[in-house]
């Protein structure tokens, strides 16, 4: 069918702490991690905190390099940050001394987009994310959700082919989160993009993704990949939605084993926490 845009081939990542040789300790975050993402797909990495899913995103972005293994984006081996990628962090990140407009301008300036085009693009993308009227506000004056929209506008204005989202709604309250999920789908409809989304919410994954890779806790490894074939717009009250969520939930709990990290523990409190997303209908 469509070609692979991102290919990750048995990537290992080991972090080594600083210090004298004797005291140095290492932590394996990713082990034999492999995925491939197709063009135009919304691919979701789902796993508990600390399973290395953010690290894999940072590796794709070129912010970290793998200890072993290879990463290709559009057939090119990733060694540094490059133009085809855009990334939005969990914490809404902008240049605080620039206005919202100035932040969208930044990438355009750096990519030497002609001045005449910049103004047009800025208003185009601010409108796309629903921030018209806030051009001259500073990031500190906006709420977390709006800052995240602004970060998304700044990222999209650079016309990336691949969008990496690292728990982009993780720092937002539950209601804003639901709104932003819908907004994201609306925005993506207009921008032709391949998206890799990292989340620890089953609900978010099932609502947004075309495919979901379930990542086991440390060292992170893809345990299984699930195709979400519920047609859009997806309805959380759809029985298929609940059924798939339940299946994934069992997979996640099952995979981790009794000594696993986070969700893996069969303690009722954490199961409830994982299922929390499902309750939001």
């Amino acid at each position: 069918m469509s070609k692979d845009v991102i290919r990750i081939d048995s990537v290992d990542k080991v972090f080594t702490t600083n210090g004298s040789k004797k005291k140095r300790s290492s932590l394996q975050v990713l082990a034999d991690f492999s995925i491939s993402v197709k063009e135009g797909e919304l691919f979701c990495l789902l796993g508990p905190s600390g399973c290395g899913k953010s690290t894999i995103l940072r590796i794709i972005a070129g912010l970290e390099s793998p200890t072993t293994g290879d990463v290709w984006v559009y057939g090119r081996s990733v060694s540094d940050v490059h133009d085809m990628l855009g990334m939005v962090f969990q914490e809404p990140t902008l240049l605080p001394w620039r206005t919202i407009e100035g932040n969208v301008y930044f990438g355009l300036e750096e990519r030497r987009v002609p001045k005449a085009e910049r103004k047009e693009k800025v208003s185009e993308y601010l409108e796309l994310v629903g921030l018209e009227g806030f051009e001259h506000h500073y990031p500190q004056q906006l709420s977390g959700g709006m800052r995240q929209r602004a970060a998304l506008a700044a990222t999209l204005a650079n016309k990336p082919k691949v969008l990496l989202l690292d728990e982009p709604f993780g720092a937002l309250d539950a209601l804003t989160r639901l709104v932003m999920q819908q907004e994201l789908l609306r925005i993506l409809e207009r921008a032709q993009l391949t998206v890799v989304l990292v989340t620890h919410s089953i609900d978010e994954a099932v609502f947004l993704a075309d495919r979901i890779a379930i990542v086991s806790p440390r060292p992170g490894k893809v345990e299984s990949t699930i195709v979400v074939d519920i047609p859009r717009p997806r309805d959380r009250t759809d029985p298929r939605f609940a059924k798939l969520s339940q299946e994934i939930f069992e997979l996640v709990v099952g995979e981790a084993g009794p000594n696993g990290n986070g969700v893996g523990r069969k303690d009722p409190a954490s199961e409830k926490a994982m299922a929390g997303g499902l309750a939001l209908k």
Binding site: A61, L63, V81, L85, F89, F106, E110, A154, T155
Partner: peptide, 9 residues
């Protein structure tokens, strides 16, 4: 912030 700027090109 440095990473954001870098990713912005």
């Amino acid at each position: 912030i440095l990473e954001f700027a870098k990713l912005q090109g």
